[in-house]
Simulated scan of single mutants.
Amino acid sequence: MTYHRFVALGDSFTEGVGDPDASRPNGVRGWADRVAAQLAGDDFAYANLAIRGRKLRQIIAEQIEPATQMAPDLVTVYAGANDVLRPRVDIDGMVEAYDAAIGRLASSGAQVVVFTAYDPGGSPVFGALRGRFAIYNELVREVADRHGATIVDFWRLRDYRDDRLWDGDRMHLSAAGHQRMAMAVLDTLGVAHDLEPLPLDERPVLSAADRRAANLEWARTHAGPWVKRRLSGTSSGDGLSPRWPTLAPVASA
């Protein structure tokens, strides 16, 4: 299928955090920009309304209506991970709101693409939340089935066990991770593309002491500020605007 109007919705995952590019708005690129470049043609436009730190209900309140007004024929939606990471979350209530939003997008005639969340089972930090994410993912699959949405099953993409597909903060995809996700989206849509995995650097095997030191540095540099924002009610996305707020042409890859 040929797409003409692609709108991407969500949080940091879709904004492109972890894939730096100083030439682009907010200083990032991301998988959605990479997908758009592959879909680009003479009659194609792309918008990206995602903002880092947004929770599911914020995404619904801020992004669904502007997206529908653009009359897209392709919409991607990633939402909910920031909610699931909170100390307390009503997953059923959250997905009820998500279901209504996906239904609204699907009823517009757009092809809607949704995502499961990554399986954190191998993570020493987020592994304790694996059960929450599994429940959330199963409910997302039900929503996709109900509304005929296409689902990119991040949970089953096992190559993301390689930490080189993740940024140094261990929460966002690296450039290689965003490239891999762009490939997964295009493959799921059945769109031919010329993307290839980005080269991965060789990394030395760390001793136990080196791993402890790396973990402590990560906690100081990334985990501490993240927890502080949660406790203070602030977000990394405060003051940011959508990177591509209106439909615009995209250069072909």
Results as ranks from 00 to 15, higher is better:
4 H>D: 12
5 R>Y: 03
6 F>Y: 15
7 V>P: 02
8 A>S: 13
18 G>F: 01
20 P>S: 05
22 A>H: 10
27 G>K: 02
27 G>T: 09
28 V>F: 01
33 D>W: 14
34 R>A: 05
37 A>K: 13
40 A>P: 14
40 A>M: 15
42 D>H: 09
43 D>L: 13
50 A>Y: 06
51 I>P: 00
52 R>M: 02
53 G>K: 11
54 R>C: 02
58 Q>K: 08
62 E>W: 05
63 Q>K: 09
64 I>T: 05
64 I>C: 00
65 E>Q: 13
67 A>G: 01
75 V>A: 02
77 V>S: 13
79 A>L: 00
79 A>T: 02
90 D>A: 08
94 M>N: 00
94 M>H: 01
97 A>D: 11
98 Y>G: 07
99 D>Q: 02
100 A>L: 02
102 I>S: 05
102 I>T: 07
108 S>D: 04
108 S>R: 06
117 A>D: 12
119 D>I: 04
130 R>A: 06
133 F>W: 00
134 A>V: 03
138 E>F: 13
139 L>H: 08
140 V>N: 06
145 D>K: 08
146 R>D: 05
149 A>D: 02
152 V>N: 01
157 L>T: 12
159 D>W: 15
163 D>C: 09
168 G>T: 15
169 D>G: 11
171 M>C: 07
171 M>D: 12
175 A>W: 03
176 A>I: 02
177 G>Q: 08
177 G>R: 07
182 A>I: 04
185 V>N: 01
186 L>M: 05
188 T>A: 05
196 E>G: 09
200 L>F: 10
201 D>F: 09
203 R>N: 11
212 R>D: 15
213 A>C: 11
214 A>W: 10
214 A>S: 14
215 N>V: 11
222 H>V: 12
225 P>W: 03
237 G>W: 00
238 D>R: 14
241 S>M: 15
242 P>G: 09
243 R>W: 10
250 V>S: 03
251 A>F: 05
251 A>T: 11
251 A>M: 05
252 S>D: 14
252 S>C: 11
253 A>K: 13
